[in-house]
Amino acid sequence: MSISPQRLKALADRTDDRIDYSDIPELDDAFFETARLVQPSQKTQITMRLDAEVLDWFRAQGKGYQTRMNAVLKAYMLTHGKR
Rank of each mutant, 00 (worst) to 15 (best):
L55V: 07
D28L: 13
Q61F: 02
S22A: 07
G64F: 05
T34L: 07
V54H: 09
A35S: 14
R59A: 15
Q39F: 04
K63V: 10
Q61T: 09
P25K: 10
A30K: 12
L55S: 05
L73S: 05
L73P: 00
E33T: 15
R68M: 07
K74Q: 08
S22R: 03
A35T: 04
R18K: 15
A52F: 11
K74N: 08
L55I: 09
I46N: 04
A52V: 15
F58A: 03
F32I: 10
E26V: 05
G62F: 01
L55E: 08
M48S: 06
K63G: 10
D16Y: 00
D29M: 12
L27Q: 05
V72P: 02
K63P: 05
R14M: 06
Q61Y: 04
I46G: 04
E33I: 12
N70K: 06
V72N: 07
R68P: 01
P40N: 12
A71L: 08
A52E: 13
Q66S: 12
F31L: 06
R18L: 06
I24A: 04
S41A: 11
S22H: 01
I46S: 05
V72R: 07
K43C: 03
Y21E: 02
E53A: 12
F58E: 00
A52N: 14
K63Q: 15
D16T: 00
F58S: 01
D23S: 03
R18D: 05
R49K: 13
A75S: 04
L55F: 08
F31P: 01
I46W: 04
I19K: 00
E26Y: 03
R36Q: 14
A75D: 08
I46K: 11
K74V: 03
Q42G: 05
L27H: 03
Q66R: 14
S41M: 10
D51A: 14
Y65R: 02
K74H: 07
D29I: 14
